[in-house]
Computed example of a mutant assay.
Amino acid sequence: MTSSAERGDGRLAMLNDFLAYTLAGTRPAANETQGTCAGGVRWSWLDDGVLLMEPARLTADTRSVLASAGVHGDETAPIELLSYLVRDIARDEAALTCRLLVILGNVDAMRDACRYRDDDLNRLFSGRHLQLPHSHEAPRAAALEQAATQFFATAPRQPGARWHIDMHTAIRASAFERFALLPHTGRLFSRAMFEWLGQAHISAVLLHTTKGNTYSHFTAQTCEAAACTLELGKVRPFGQNDLMRFVGADRALRHLLAGTNGSAQAELPRAFTVIDQITKRSEAFELLVAPDVANFTPFGKGIVLARDGDYRYVVQHDEERLVFPNATVKPGLRAGLMVIETTQDTLSKLV
């Protein structure tokens, strides 16, 4: 029997190159939105850049994993990785034992080779898009919230049953080339997540201490998923990425989807906890660091890092590290995060 992925009906092109299919704006005909591919994996095209894949056999304990990339349209390497992952699962060259929702986030920005059109999509979740109804990104934020909510609605609630891996690349260099951010939910952090991050060759984890408006914050808080944001390298145009630099995250994700352990003895990443935020209050804002300062650059006590009218940010601890410095954001938004290392305390409290 010929599988739907093997017929010349346009579905082969979708699964073989989900990225190209999505960038072209192709939408399947009403009778071509789902099918079965090699190995019995069932798939359903749900929306532009949104694809559901499920193994032939589902049980009450089947894990559900949301894998997203391209929430910022110019962060191309993880988008390419997800497209190759879809192809390999469709060809039965990568195992799938869980439900998988693949999401390419800001598709319009991907097509325009820009980060976003009007507003940073990764600041519009948890309902913040309702405050910016005229933003080009607002409808996409609402659609991605709905996609995640519907996907996790039927997933079991026991620990480890719901995952969200949101993959990004950083604008600038970093003292840790690959690092992760874990959202604040009020719950203790998961040892399983830290072990998986170690397998993904993640060197450092940034722990948020307040709720946010990122996609991983939304899925962690609203969908009760074990969620993380991965920063895996530098922003590059499509086709210019050295994907070997991302092999750790790619392999770890494939092991997660296959239900295998991968490198069980991987070293756990270092942990850094957010202690403050530098906020751009007006257009008079000045960030008093070099324009190319790397993420996680340390600064000593007493150093003034930013000023904006009467506002000053002065380092209060013996050492604080600056992450995501960006003086060009709109007033009212974050221009940098300040973190301190808390590795020993964090690892002792994992559950």
Rank of each mutant, 00 (worst) to 15 (best):
D250L: 10
R27D: 11
Q131C: 13
H129C: 05
R63K: 05
H208P: 06
A294R: 10
F151S: 02
L130P: 01
A155K: 00
T343N: 02
A67Y: 00
L46Y: 04
V247L: 07
D118N: 07
M167K: 13
S126E: 05
T297I: 04
T62Y: 00
D242C: 05
A175T: 14
A290V: 05
N16E: 12
R57D: 14
R191F: 08
P237I: 01
A142V: 14
D119L: 09
S174C: 00
V50E: 07
R162L: 00
M14I: 10
K280P: 03
N213L: 14
R236N: 14
L144C: 06
I79D: 00
Q221M: 09
L130W: 03
T346P: 02
H208R: 01
D345K: 10
L124M: 10
V107F: 04
A113S: 13
I103T: 08
A60G: 01
N241M: 02
R334F: 11
A24I: 01
F246P: 09
T62H: 03
I202H: 01
I79L: 02
F296M: 07
L15K: 05
A252T: 03
E231G: 00
Y21T: 02
I171N: 13
R123Y: 09
R140K: 06
F299I: 01
S216H: 14
T169L: 13
V86K: 12
D9I: 08
L132Q: 07
L206V: 13
V102D: 09
T149R: 15
A95H: 14
P133R: 15
A180P: 03
